[in-house]
C-alpha cells in the first residue's frame, strides 16, 4: 500500500465514520425512546439515558402478535413477488431504451419520463383498478398499482446500462451468433449485478414501506401488510388530533391512543426486518467487475 493510498484510507474512514454517527444517532434515540418508561419521557423529556426503562410498548405490540405475524407474512410475500416481477419488467424495459440505436428509442424514453411528472391522480387510478381490473380487497392490490414499474427506476437502470455495458461486448456476442435475448441474459445481466441489486433494493424498500395501496384498495383487515397496521395506528392519531368533528365525539377512544413510546416501538418494528435483509443485497454490490475479462 502506498503512502497516498494509506492517507486516503484514513481520510475516508474518518469522514464516513462521522457521517455514520450523524445518521445513526437519531435512530438510537428512536430505539431508546421505545424502551423508555412513558412517564419518565413525559416528566423529564427525551433522553439518551432515560431514568427508567420499560417493556410496555413492546408488550402492547406483543398483545397483537397474531395480527402482526400475519401481516409480516403478507408483507414478505408482497415484497418478494413484487420486487421479482418489478425488477424483471424494469430491466427488460430499461435495456432496449439504453440502446442508442433503437428506433423510436427517444420516444419510448419520453413516455417513461412523462409518467414521472404527470399522473391522473388518485381518483382515476382507483377507478381503473377497481372498475376495470377489480383488484379491490385482493392481494394484487398491494402488488400491482403504482409500485410494479417505476419510471425513475427504469431511467436509472437505463443510464446504468448505457454507462457500464460497452457496445463492443454486445457486438462481439452478436458476432458469436447470440440472439438479443441470449445476449441480454448471459452477458448484460451478469455484468449488471450491482445495478440490479441497487434497483432491487430500492424496489424492496418501496414495497416494504408502502401503505398507500393498502389504505386505498383494502377494507378487509385480514390482508393488511405490516405497514398498513402500523400506519393505521399513526394516521389515526394524526387524524384525531387534527380533526375537531371527531375529536369532540370520540373522547373515549382518544384516551386509548398509543403514547409516544408505542409510536417509537411501532417504527422500530417496521424498520428492523428490512435492516436485517439488507446484507443480502450487499452481496451483489461488489467492487471490481472487470469488464475487460469478458472481452
Amino acid at each position: 500500500m502506498t503512502k497516498e493510498t494509506r492517507r486516503w484510507q484514513w481520510i475516508s474512514h474518518i469522514c464516513l465514520a462521522s457521517i455514520s454517527i450523524f445518521c445513526i444517532i437519531p435512530f438510537l434515540l428512536l430505539i431508546i425512546s421505545s424502551i423508555s418508561d412513558e412517564m419518565s419521557i413525559l416528566q423529564n423529556g427525551y433522553s439518551f439515558l432515560p431514568e427508567s426503562f420499560s417493556r410496555d410498548a413492546y408488550l402492547y405490540l406483543w398483545e397483537q402478535r397474531g395480527q402482526l405475524i400475519r401481516a409480516y407474512g403478507i408483507t414478505i410475500f408482497v415484497t418478494v413477488v413484487g420486487t421479482s416481477i418489478g425488477l424483471a419488467l424494469t430491466a427488460l424495459l430499461a435495456y432496449p431504451l439504453s440502446r442508442k440505436d433503437l428506433p423510436l428509442g427517444k420516444f419510448f424514453t419520453f413516455l417513461v419520463f412523462f409518467t414521472l411528472l404527470f399522473n391522473g391522480g388518485l381518483v382515476p387510478t382507483y377507478y381503473v383498478y377497481t372498475q376495470i381490473f377489480d383488484i379491490k380487497n385482493t392481494i394484487w392490490a398491494l402488488i400491482i398499482p403504482v409500485l410494479l414499474v417505476n419510471g425513475f427506476n427504469v431511467l436509472l437502470m437505463r443510464t446504468f446500462f448505457m454507462n457500464t455495458i460497452p457496445d463492443a461486448v454486445l457486438e462481439s456476442a452478436r458476432i458469436d451468433g447470440a440472439g438479443e435475448f441470449r445476449a441480454f441474459f448471459s452477458i448484460v445481466l451478469p455484468l449488471s449485478l450491482p445495478i440490479l441489486a441497487t434497483i432491487g433494493l430500492l424496489q424492496t424498500i418501496m414495497y416494504w414501506n408502502d401503505w398507500m395501496n393498502g389504505l386505498i384498495y383494502l377494507t378487509d383487515p385480514s390482508l393488511y401488510s405490516i405497514q398498513n397496521i402500523l400506519n393505521r395506528i399513526l394516521t389515526d392519531i394524526q387524524f384525531l388530533t387534527s380533526n375537531s368533528d371527531y375529536a369532540a365525539q370520540s373522547g373515549k377512544t382518544i384516551s386509548q391512543l398509543p403514547s409516544a413510546t408505542i409510536r417509537m416501538a411501532i417504527a422500530v418494528v417496521g424498520i428492523l426486518p428490512i435492516i436485517v435483509a439488507y446484507p443480502f443485497f450487499q452481496k451483489y454490490l461488489v467492487k471490481g467487475i472487470t469488464i475487460g475479462s469478458v472481452k
Binding site: L122, V123, Y126, Y127, T130, Q131, L215, I216, T219, N231, R232, L234, T235, D236, Q238, F239, L240, N243, D245, Y246
Partner: peptide, 29 residues
C-alpha cells in the same frame, strides 16, 4: 368499517367511481 385515518379518502373514492354504497356516515366538515 373503515379506519378513521383513511375514511374520508375511502368513501370519496367509492363515490367517484360509482361503487355501490347505500349508507354513509359523514362528518360536519
Amino acid at each position: 368499517p373503515i379506519s378513521i385515518g383513511a375514511y374520508d379518502q375511502q368513501y370519496n373514492l367509492m363515490l367517484t367511481s360509482n361503487e355501490k354504497l347505500d349508507l354513509l356516515m359523514v362528518s360536519f366538515r
